[in-house]
């Protein structure tokens, strides 16, 4: 009994070392910009770079739009498939898995061929149109995660009976989705949103080939041209990611019925 506990602690410690050692090493390296002493010079350089602020801001904004579009696309789809087309579930699941199989470069070339300036819908002709294309691309890259998260969330509630109960009380589809389905899968939607955020912040291929000023291409450029700044940038990216996770936890706890369920 006692030895089992010791072994589990050893396994836990090994796991933590495996995860944290490279991070600590990277953090330590990022502090060495000034010769002979530790400093935050690399961080100051990164944060002071107007390019950093512009690209990061752009990517955050794109991530938010991608999340909103993803929720509007995925939640009603999963709901409808569960409610009315359960036989189509394997097909829809397969489609949502395609982005994991088809590389983004194929998608972006497809986009450029279909929506170039001499096509029937010249989306790449304007910055706004290209932003829109980029958002669609991001939504697709995040689809496997978003779909699965929402599907798992909906599995925990009796969608059909709740929908029928709401209908018998006079509710229409939008009320049912907004007031019953979405709040009940909020935690799942948030985890999907978080994954979407992480994907959008780090994505390189779509943004680079559509020539948009996103954070991914900036990180690659920085990595190729500077020494200490990329490490600082990676640490900053980690902090942002963790802050997002903490935010999700916070929101989850603020929602009363899930808080009560966790007790």
């Amino acid at each position: 009994m006692r030895s089992a506990k010791i072994w589990s602690w050893i396994a836990f410690a090994a796991g933590m070392l495996y995860f944290f050692l490279p991070l600590i090493g990277m953090f330590e390296f990022s502090l060495r910009a000034r010769r002979g002493e530790y400093s935050f010079d690399a961080y100051a350089s990164v944060l002071g770079d107007p390019q950093f602020r512009a690209t990061f801001g752009y990517s955050v904004l794109m991530a938010l739009f991608t999340i909103i579009f993803g929720i509007l696309l995925v939640v009603p789809t999963v709901f409808w498939v569960r409610l009315k087309l359960p036989r189509w579930r394997p097909v829809i699941e397969f489609i949502t898995l395609l982005p994991l199989v088809i590389p983004p470069i194929v998608i972006v070339f497809g986009y450029i061929r279909l929506y170039n300036t001499s096509s029937w819908l010249p989306l790449t002709g304007t910055a706004m149109g290209t932003n829109l294309l980029l958002m669609f691309g991001y939504t697709m890259l995040a689809l496997p995660y978003m779909y699965r998260a929402v599907d798992t969330g909906l599995r925990t509630i009796d969608v059909q009976t709740l929908t029928e109960a709401a209908q018998s009380l006079g509710a229409g589809w939008i009320t049912i989705l907004a007031r019953l389905i979405l709040p009940n899968v909020l935690v799942a939607v948030l985890s999907g949103a978080f994954l979407t955020f992480a994907i959008v912040i780090g994505e390189f291929v779509l943004a680079a080939l559509l020539n948009r000023p996103a954070f991914g291409p900036y990180m690659v450029w920085m990595g190729a041209n500077k020494a200490y700044e990329p490490a600082a940038l990676a640490v900053i990216a980690f902090v942002v990611t963790w802050a997002c996770m903490a935010l999700i936890q916070l929101v989850t706890r603020l929602s009363a019925h899930t808080r009560a369920q966790q007790r």
Binding site: E164, A165, S168, N184
Partner: peptide
């Protein structure tokens, strides 16, 4: 449509909205 019929229904599985 069901939501226009003004018919109340009680289900075997209660079907209370868990978030409310």
């Amino acid at each position: 449509r069901p939501n226009a019929r003004k018919i109340g229904m009680v289900f075997q599985a209660y079907a209370l909205f868990p978030n409310l």
